[in-house]
């Protein structure tokens, strides 16, 4: 039972937590605010917080000058594509490991996890070389495959832990009730697994969206997603804070929203079910 707490105590907690929360969030808030300033206001001394001439100009400029939509589209295709591809491969695998376990199931799961721990830089050149050989360098399909592969262990693991939570008795009950394997999967398993599959999908989109080693090293212009687009701002010319902020805001906004929805599942996904 939670114990009643004095209002004073609760007030102190609230003030402290909000102060720290805002401090941690501040860089994001500042980026969003700056994106609505003019370039001159962005570097004003002293800094301007809320009282400036709000403008949307930067967003228009960023799109016009650097074709933001193309990078966004690349990000969407690569993150979404790798996730869907990964799910198609992982769902049957996780299903069979959870419901028809064998002596080797555990070893296979652990081995899959170990592939996730390989440092990317250790295999950078071979992949680079293979990509040139296969004509995959700077293509969306190439990047989609790589991101699918690096996140496949996480997808399998997350789905496995979700499937494991579906009691075997329920599937047996369905079998007793006359459901065929197809009906069992369609009416019982799928509806029960959908929340798990959805949060796996969400987390994986986030991870793929933010991946910044392979996306930086395997793309040039055609297939570059938002990570690479933002990196191109690292060598600036002239006044660019407001535009950098606008570009950044657009790059992180979709994922920030998705992330907030999936925060509960995040823990399970990132610790391979070891913390629940």
């Amino acid at each position: 039972m939670a114990r009643a707490v004095t209002t004073r105590r609760k007030t102190i907690n609230t003030v402290a937590a909000w102060a720290i929360g805002l401090l941690i969030f501040f860089p994001i808030l500042w980026t969003i605010l700056t994106s609505f300033k003019t370039e001159a206001q962005a570097i004003n001394d002293p800094p301007l917080f809320l009282f400036f001439d709000w403008t949307l100009e930067n967003y228009a400029v960023v799109q016009e000058r650097s074709d933001y939509m193309r990078f966004l589209w690349n990000s969407v295709i690569i993150a979404g594509g790798s996730t869907i591809l990964g799910l198609i491969i992982a769902v049957p695998a996780a299903w069979s490991m959870a419901f028809v376990p064998s002596k080797r199931t555990k070893d296979i799961l652990m081995w899959m996890l170990s592939t996730k721990m390989l440092p990317a830089v250790g295999v950078l050149y071979p992949i680079y070389l293979l990509f040139i050989e296969l004509g995959l360098l700077d293509t969306r399909i190439g990047l989609t495959i790589v991101l699918m592969l690096i996140n496949l262990p996480i997808i399998v693991w997350m789905l496995y832990t979700y499937f494991k939570e579906i009691p075997g008795e329920i599937l047996e009950a369905a079998r007793m009730d006359g459901a065929t394997l197809k009906e069992e999967i369609l009416y019982i398993l799928t509806p029960m697994a959908i929340p798990g599959i959805a949060s796996t999908l969400l987390l994986n989109v986030i991870l793929a969206w933010n991946e910044a080693f392979w996306t930086l090293n395997l793309t040039a212009a055609k297939a570059a997603p938002l990570t690479a687009f933002i990196a191109s701002y690292s060598s600036p010319e002239g006044l660019f804070y407001a535009k950098l902020s606008a570009a950044s805001t657009m790059a992180i906004a979709p994922i920030l929203i998705l992330g907030w929805f999936s925060q509960k599942q995040l823990v399970r996904g990132l610790t391979f079910g070891a913390v629940k």
């Binding site: 009691p167 008795e169 047996e172 006359g178 065929t180």
Partner: peptide, 15 residues
């Protein structure tokens, strides 16, 4: 399913 039997499980196994 074809044996014509019905089962009540320990965990109830409700959907």
């Amino acid at each position: 399913a074809k044996r014509g039997l019905a089962m009540v499980f320990q965990s109830y196994a409700l959907y």
